[in-house]
Amino acid sequence: MRNRNVLPLLLTVLVVLGLLLFGGTGILGQLTDRTTPEGGVSATPGPGAATGPAAQGSPFAGSGTDAAPQPQAQVNPSGLPEVRESALPPEGRRTLALIRAGGPYSYRQDDQTFGNFERILPRRDRGYYREYTVPTPGESDRGARRIVAGDGGEKYYTDDHYETFRFIAEGS
Rank of each mutant, 00 (worst) to 15 (best):
E118Y: 03
H161L: 09
D110A: 10
G138R: 11
P81A: 03
R119G: 00
S78L: 09
E139P: 05
R126V: 14
D159C: 12
P81C: 05
T164M: 05
P104D: 04
R130D: 06
D111G: 07
D111H: 15
G92S: 05
I147N: 13
L88A: 03
Y105L: 02
L88T: 00
P122L: 06
R100W: 05
S78E: 08
T133D: 06
A97G: 02
L121E: 02
D111F: 12
L121V: 05
G102S: 10
G143T: 08
Y128C: 07
S106C: 00
S140F: 11
E131F: 14
V134K: 04
G138Q: 09
L98I: 04
A97I: 02
G143P: 14
P90I: 02
E154W: 10
T95N: 01
S106P: 10
T164E: 02
A149K: 14
V83P: 02
I99V: 01
T164Q: 13
D151E: 15
V83I: 15
P137S: 07
V75D: 12
F114I: 07
G152Q: 13
L96G: 00
R145L: 02
Q109S: 15
T113Q: 13
L121K: 05
G138C: 08
G79S: 03
A87N: 00
P135C: 09
R100A: 14
V134A: 09
S106V: 06
P135F: 08
Y157T: 07
G103E: 02
D141F: 11
T136G: 03
Y129N: 09
L80W: 01
T136N: 07
A101K: 04
R100K: 09
V148C: 06
A144W: 12
Y129E: 08
F117D: 09
Y107M: 05
Q112W: 11
R84I: 01
P135G: 07
F114R: 06
G150R: 13
E91S: 04
A87W: 00
P77K: 04
Y105T: 01
R145C: 08
G103I: 04
P135L: 08
S86C: 07
R93I: 01
L121H: 02
P90Y: 01
Y129Q: 09
D110Y: 11
F117V: 07
R130H: 15
E82A: 15
L88R: 01
E154I: 12
L80A: 07
H161M: 12
Q109V: 15
